[in-house]
Design a protein around this nucleic acid. Sequence first.
DNA 1: TACCGCCCGTGACATCTGTCATGGCTTTCT
DNA 2: AGAAAGCCATGACAGATGTCACGGGCGGTA
Lengths: 201, 201
Amino acid sequence: MIRILLADDEHLIRGAMAALLSLEDDLEVVAQAATGAEALATARVVRPDVAVIDLQMPDLDGVSVAQALSSELPSCSTMIVTSHGRPGHLKRALAAGVRGFLPKTVSSDVLATVVRTVAAGGRYVDPALAAEAISAGDNPLTPREADVLELALEGAPIDEIARRASLSPGTVRNYLSSAVGKTGASNRHEAARFAKARGWI
Amino acid sequence: MIRILLADDEHLIRGAMAALLSLEDDLEVVAQAATGAEALATARVVRPDVAVIDLQMPDLDGVSVAQALSSELPSCSTMIVTSHGRPGHLKRALAAGVRGFLPKTVSSDVLATVVRTVAAGGRYVDPALAAEAISAGDNPLTPREADVLELALEGAPIDEIARRASLSPGTVRNYLSSAVGKTGASNRHEAARFAKARGWI
DNA sequence: TACCGCCCGTGACATCTGTCATGGCTTTCT
DNA sequence: AGAAAGCCATGACAGATGTCACGGGCGGTA
């Protein structure tokens, strides 16, 4: 019997997925969590065989949870399920030790199959997502550029970005200009959206 | 027996919700659809008692589907389920004849209860969402301002917005300036994000 | 050691944006 | 008919932004 931890902030989805997984004879949902922190805490106690984690959750990112889990509980295989599969996320997730990565558009038997696969020590990545990630290429932004661009995402003026990043406004403008050049955008807002779409920030 | 049509672009979620609703003795999922258009076409054939529709779908908006359904199939009650509940959406949905509006964070028994409620001719709106909608107030933007702001959402420069809206750049700047004033933002990008968060665009 | 890339900053310049005043046009309500 | 509101446009001005050139410091690598 494969023991599963399920984490998703959407109660309805979580309950529904649990109902669906429980239909399988060899699968058992032993715990559920609504936030990343909760998932982590629960996993430490119940020590599941597989953790099925939603990528976007209120507090902790799904990837962060996976990172912590893979170091603390090596016996537990983590897989990520997500609505919006961005190439960068996949790359980060794989680096964090995630064994399975699926969009929520897959059918339920695929989910069950993948749970079994990762429980057995295998890996599985959605083919469409994998293709996208490969074609998207690497993140050309330097860490600082990514930081600043992330702050620019909300549309804040440069002075505020500078304050929040503890940088001089001139430096911020240089990083932003560089990022705009690398993304081929025509201003920082477009660049920020572009980078986010690729999962670079 | 209440006959249900389920529409959601995420296969996994849809299947899971179907599994969950089928657990109830008096509920029966008679059809599923992955897109808005598909939902509409299917509904015309199977004539369900209740249509449970996801708000965001690839082609047709959930509200548009509800609109069409309420005029074509008055016997079918429509309810919307959504991940991101924005006040403006709720208002539009209600105007389109939707009888139930729920975030996906609710529990499964709430869902089942609401299905029964709307099937019986009642209405139900998630209290938290309702409170948000009331406190958010009305959309202060004029139709044109909303149009232009929507084009500004992607971060395009003003000249491009003007071209896409078939307006002079000066006019675009005026509308944008007005919208920035109404939203209390410090530039159009922030204003656009703000307006989107409220469901104004 | 020398080179390279990243980090952080300054200054200057041209352009883009946000704001305001103004005016003509149409539609709707009183 | 008159008032009010929205739509579209122009012009002018200040301030924000994007771009470029330049320089110093730091850390890794050949």
